[in-house]
Structure formats: structure tokens, C-alpha cells
Design a protein around this nucleic acid. Sequence first.
DNA 1: CTTTTGAATTTAAACGATTAACTTTTGTAA
DNA 2: TTACAAAAGTTAATCGTTTAAATTCAAAAG
Lengths: 348, 348
Amino acid sequence: MATMKEIAALSDVSVATVSHVLSGKKNVSEDARSRVLQAIELTNYKLNTIAKSLRINKTHIIGVLVEDIQGLPVPELVDGIYQRLEQTGYQVLLSNLRLLKKLYNQYEQLRQYPGIVNQGLQLLEDARVDGIIYVAMHDRRIEGIQLPVNIPLVFAYADSSDPGSFSVTYQNESSAYAMTRLLIEQGHRQIALIVGHASTPAANQRLTGFRQAMDEAGLPVPSDYIRWGDWEYHSGLEEAEALLSLTVPPTAIFAMNDLMASGCYAAIRHRGLRIPEDISVVGFDNREIASCLFPGLTTVALPSREIGSTAAQQLLLRLEGQPVDTPMISLPCRIIQRDSTMPLPARR
Amino acid sequence: MATMKEIAALSDVSVATVSHVLSGKKNVSEDARSRVLQAIELTNYKLNTIAKSLRINKTHIIGVLVEDIQGLPVPELVDGIYQRLEQTGYQVLLSNLRLLKKLYNQYEQLRQYPGIVNQGLQLLEDARVDGIIYVAMHDRRIEGIQLPVNIPLVFAYADSSDPGSFSVTYQNESSAYAMTRLLIEQGHRQIALIVGHASTPAANQRLTGFRQAMDEAGLPVPSDYIRWGDWEYHSGLEEAEALLSLTVPPTAIFAMNDLMASGCYAAIRHRGLRIPEDISVVGFDNREIASCLFPGLTTVALPSREIGSTAAQQLLLRLEGQPVDTPMISLPCRIIQRDSTMPLPARR
DNA sequence: CTTTTGAATTTAAACGATTAACTTTTGTAA
DNA sequence: TTACAAAAGTTAATCGTTTAAATTCAAAAG
């Protein structure tokens, strides 16, 4: 592999001049420049980025820390990061913690989580990345994570616990609000909610949005209608069964994720009822399952790609030393209307 | 950030000794070692990997080139790479070409593909990665790709065109054979096949496997029963309709991917027929849709994770200069039995 | 014909490690 | 005591750049 020294020798200038030609930051005579360029062409010379990094103390590499690359929103989110980084000259060092494989149960998860994350952060720090995007999906406040002090970091997807930090998340509350409004506008008055795991912020935020919409519309929310699930298929099935057994069953069920919604489908079918003619169902997340189900599930699509590109944008601004006007950004979700709901009057 | 020089000064030895302590390749007195370790502890010193890389001409970074991180098998495959790389000290620089977003039609795809790939390879080469895993999903032979000459490269998922190269793929032919056997063993004699796009090697290999199983069983394959689709949902639907309109419709349909299989579901339902009582359907790929469909689709699961980990293994061997016994590996697939098939006698 | 000025170019010191070659120290045997 | 080998430690070159500072050079001004 050719080095700058050889280029310099070939084109009869000093290495400094070669460097000046390449960087374009200093004047070089047309004569010298063309000789240098010719030598570069001839030898197929490529600048050694490692040497450059050492000298300028910048790697032009961004570290992306993900809990699991197979986690639902991760590939799309990471793609959003690449989308923004294209043409900027930054590369991505991806640190995949593989949590889905490593942490079997909640207890282990809480105990081991900080250690694993710190290790991942340490690796990125050791690699001298210029900045870090931490794609955190856990939704409970975690103690004991040591963020690198010298490297700009942006949280993506989950909220950061630290108020001084930078983050890009999505709007749980307003999305649940909008989805609830949709059902109300279709004439539903008996709307039940299957909440996710009680301890998760996402569940609570979505619950708040739901309550707000119901309150605003003056609709009652009987405690029977608020069911606590755990995000899994089976809890959706069980809670839907409980709802259908009530003396006044709901006309619409809002499940807080698509998995639980598909559990609702099963429970409803099991009763011999039809979706949406007899009961409307909506979900949250827009997993592939939502479009596979029959009828197609109306649900909330998270702005995963936008979270990624916006987080990258935040980080780039900080790397350029520019002021960041909004350190904590929360992006809106989009409602995907399919065929699992129906205006209520139609069946009266 | 502390440097080796400072550690040397603090512990009253030379930088060489500090380096010796860290590398463990030379004898250092217990006395000196402990002083150095103490200084490292004190200053929170971290070896500068950039400087090390420059000196030893190795980055301990593996470049992974993917056509699109959102492509179906990619996240799992990449996770397999990480699985193997864990504890080896290698990091991953992921180059995501974003082809799904960039290439709209086949024509553009063929024309632009080599340029985009070459650019991605160039970026990895510039970053001085130690080795490259090229996750290629395209399944037609592509001309004009310039593989780096100095960097070990392993193809993953797709076959490489070059016979001298290293690759890890999966078995199309034997998997189609096994799936066909499964139907035959269930008593089916009229088995139809919906092939993928005619120009793709995967389609032809699967076709060969199908034919072999049928021939071996002495079953006829009327040309009416071989339908040429294009991997998309609609072609599955259309070809299934054509099959059901035949004077002797098949008792089982083997669609070459899950998307076309789900098209079959729609066509069969539209005729008022039941799956699997009236007709059996099987697919290929084991996408999420396969488990979402009702009844669950029996299909072929690709060994994506294993492809990734095996490719990483191949690369590690080459990086260590060890002999690679099998440069081109082809891994078996696994049949996932769900509820979309039924032994034929049951409905007689 | 100097002097000045500015552009073009070079020199040389970093950046932070590794490592071959050399020197010093220590321990052991004659 | 001396001689020698092995162990421990140091020196200094090197990896391939960047860049401040110094130098050279040519053209313009005095």
C-alpha cells in the first residue's frame, strides 16, 4: 500500500504538500497539484484513515449501541441513522448487546443490565468513536449506567432518565389519545383498554392519553374496562375474555400492543363474534402481525426511522459544535387505519 | 486522557515497560508491574487503540456489508456474526447500502448495483477493517464488483460467483426436496409448485429439489402444476386461482415463499375451500407472516443466524492464518411444521 | 536595485502506541 | 572473587498522517 511519502517522492514535493493537496486547506500551485494527483492515480494511493485519526484525534466513526438488533424497531431505526449519515463521511460502529439472548427473566435483566450496557459503552469508548447513539428499548429507569464523559451521546427510542441529556423519543400519550379519539368519533362509548405491564412508563403514558380522551368526551371509564396485561399474547386473550364476560361488554377494545390485540382477536373469535361488526379492536406498534391478521388491525405506527435520523442529526450538530435548540425531542406517531374498527351506528 | 507516557512517568519506568505490562508478552518484575497497574488504575488510563492500530497495522474491526439492514434475514444473520465475535475482541463496522430505499425497479437495480456495492466495499477498505463479511441477498450473478485484494472476505447468504472465494450459504435444493417429501409422505400425489422469479438461482434450485423428490416417488409433474410466480403476494394468489380452476386441481400447493403462500390462502378461501382439510399449502422462508396466518403455515426456516456465525468463524480462521478446510459451506434449513397440511387419507 | 509582500513549499514536531536491539541488573556457578 | 547467563528494563525507530512555523521564491513596490 502506497503512503504519502511515496506519493511525495513520485511527484517531487514534500509530504506536507501532498497533504495540502488532499485536504485543500492550503494553496498549492496548479503544477504541483496535478503532479500529486497523477501520482495518486498511478499508485492507487488511499489515505490511511487510522494515521489521520491518530493525528487529528477524530475517527469519524459513530458508535451505535443497541440492546438487540433483532428487537422490533431496531433495524428500521438504525436504517434511519444511516439515512442521515449518508454523505457525511461518518461510519457506524455497531455494538449489539444481544440482550434478547442473554437475559431470560426480568430479575436477571434488572441485575445484569447496567453491567452489560456499561461494557458496550466501554467498547465504543475504547474504539475512540466521535459520538454515540444509545438505542434503549428498556422502559424502566435504570441505575448504574456510566455514560462516557468525553463523548457526546444521544438517546434514541427510550427516554433518558437524566434531564441534562439529549434524546429522541416518540409520543406515547398523544398517540393513545388520538387512537382513543378515533374510536370515540366512530361512535363508541364503551371502550375498554388493555394496558401493558404496569411498571413500564410507556404503559402509563398511553393510559394517560386514553383517560384524557375519554374524560374530554365525557365518557365514563369503569374500572372493569381497564385491564392490566403484560404485553404478551396470552394476557390479551385472557383480558379480552374477561371483558366479553362483563354484563355490559365494551363495543371497542384498545390493546396497547399488537400482540395483545391479536390475543383479543382469538378471544373474540372464540365467542363466535365478528371483528369489526360486533366489536372493534385496535392495537399499538404496527408490527408485521398487524397487517397479517384478518381483518387488518388498525394500529399506531412508531416513527422508528425518524427517531434514528433525528438522533443522528442531533449528534451531528453536537459534533460540529453547533447549538442544539431542542435537546429532548418527542416525535409523533401515525395511526394506520385498517379494517378492525367500524362506526358504531352501522350495527344499531 | 492519560497516555502511556504519563503512566510511565507516574510509575517510574519507561513506556516500553508499560507496554510490556499491558501486552504480557515480556517479563516484567512484580514490583514494576504493580506500580504500573496502580498508575493505570489511578489515572483511569485506557490504551489508545487508534495508535495501536497504526503501529501494528491491524484494527481488530470487521466490516460487515449488508444490502439493507431491513431485509428479512439480515438482523438475525448479523446477530449470528456478533454471537461468534463475542469475546474475540473484534468490533463490527456495519456498512448498510440501503438498497431497498434506493433501487426502485429491476432495471435500475442491475445497473446501479455494482457501483453501490463497490462504494460500500471501498468505505470499509478505507476504514482499514481486518476482514469483510459481505451479506449478499441478490440472487443473480452480478458483474463488475471489485473485491478488495488485501482484505479477507467471506460471502454470506448468497453464493459467490467466483469459485476461489469463501462463502456460507443455505441449502435450497435439499430443503425443497425435504418439504416435497413431507407432502408425499402425507399421501399427496397431486402436488403443485409455485416457483419464484424464473431468473433467480434460488427458484431454480428449489425447483430441482422438488422435481427430484417427485421423480424419486414416481409421481408425475404435469406442466400445469408448475406455475411461475415472481415472489410477490399477487402472483401467489393468481397462480393458486389458476391451479384451482384445473380439471384436476392439486391436493397440495408448495409455494416457494411465504408471501406467495399467503396469496394461495386468499385464493383458496375465496373459493370457499378450507386449509388444510381441502387443500394443503406450504411455503418457504418462515417470515413472521407464516405464524400469523391461520392456520399456521408449514414452511422452511433459513438458518440465518448460523450463516452469520459460520461466516464469522470462517473469517476468524483466515485472520488467524489458519487453514480453512471448507471454503464454501452450505447449511441445511429446518422445516417448521404448523397446521397448513394434513395427511391425504383423512379426507377420503 | 533593494525591499516588501504574499504565495508556495518545506521542515520537523507531534499523535500514542509497539518492538527489535541494546544495556543494566541480578543470580548462579566456577 | 570473577565470569556468565538470564531476567528486567531502556532506547530509539517506526507506523502514516497533520500542521505550526520556518523557509524559499517570485512578483510588485519603492
